[in-house]
Amino acid sequence: MEAYILAVLAMAGIYAMLAVSYDLAFGYAGLFSVAHGAFFGIGAYAGALSMLNLGLPFPLALLAGAAAAGLVAAAIALPASRLEGDYLIVGSLAFAVICHELMLNLTEVTRGPMGIPGIPPPSLFGFDFDTPWLQLLVILAVLAVIGLVAWRIAASPYGRVLRALKDDPTALEAAGKSVRRRKLEILTVSAAMAGAAGVTYASYVAFIDPESFIARTSFVIIVATVLGGAGTLWGPAIGALVIWCVPEALRFAGIPATLRGPLNEIVYAALLILIVMLRPEGIAGRRRLRTRTETGTTTTASTTTPAN
C-alpha cells in the first residue's frame, strides 16, 4: 500500500510542478498556451539523453532539461509573442503537434515510438535515490525549488508586471514596458520549469515515449490549473493532486472495469464544469464578492487584499 500511495503522490508532485509553472504563464500573465506538455517532453528527452549518453548526474541533467525546454520556448516565443488570445492557442497547439511528430520521427535521437527505456533514478555523489520514499523526496525537493522560484517571481514587482500583462497589456505598453519582451521571458521561465519536471518524470518512470507528451498532457495541466485556481500558485498544485487522486480513488469504488476508464474522463469534465459554474476562481482562488456601487452597477471585489 505504501509504495502505491507514494507512486500516486509522486505523479501528483510531478504534475504539480507542471501546473505551478503553467500558472506563471497562464494564471499570472494570461498566456493561454497548450504547448506546456511539449516543453515537459523536451525536458524529459533532453534530461534522459544527457543522463544516458553523456553520463550527467541528475542535478546537471535537470539543468540540461530545463535549459533545453527554455531555449526552445524562447525561440518559439519570439514569433509567438506577437500572438494573443485564440491565435496563441492555435499557434501553441501547432507547436505541440510538431513537437510530437519530431519525437516520433527523429528516431536517431529519440528512438521514435519505441521510446527510451532504462533511464537511471536520481543520484547524487554516487548515492541512488531509488526507493519509493527517496524518489518522492527528490520530487518534493524539485517541486519546492520550482514553487519557491515561482513564488519569488509572483511576489516581486515583476509579478505585478505580469498581472498587468494579463489585465491590460495596452496600459502596460503605455507605461513603457515591453509586452513582447515580458511574454518571451515568462514563457521561457515557465517552459524551463516544465522541462525540469520532464527530467524528474523521466528519472522516476525510467521510460519515456512520445505518447506521454501528447496534447492531452497539456489539457490535464490546464484542467489542474483551472481546478485549483489560476493565479494562486499553490492552487494549481492542489489541482494536480485532485487530478491524480480522484481517478485513483475511483479504483476503490467497485465500479465495473468497463465503466471505470470512460468514467475517469467524465469525472475530469464534471469537475471542470462544476468548478467553472460554482467557483470560477478555482479551489484556492480568491473569493470574489458581488457588491453594488452607489450608481447601481455590479462590481466584484476580492475578500483578501490583492497581492499587489
Binding site: M1, E2, A3, V8, S212, R251
Partner: peptide, 22 residues
C-alpha cells in the same frame, strides 16, 4: 482485477503499484 492505463506509461505505473501493493 482490471485497472485502466489508457495505454499511458504514467497511468500504467500507478495502476501497477495499486494492483501490487493494495
Amino acid at each position: 482485477i482490471f485497472e485502466d492505463s489508457a495505454a499511458q506509461p504514467a497511468r500504467a505505473v500507478t495502476a501497477a503499484q495499486k494492483l501490487i501493493q493494495v
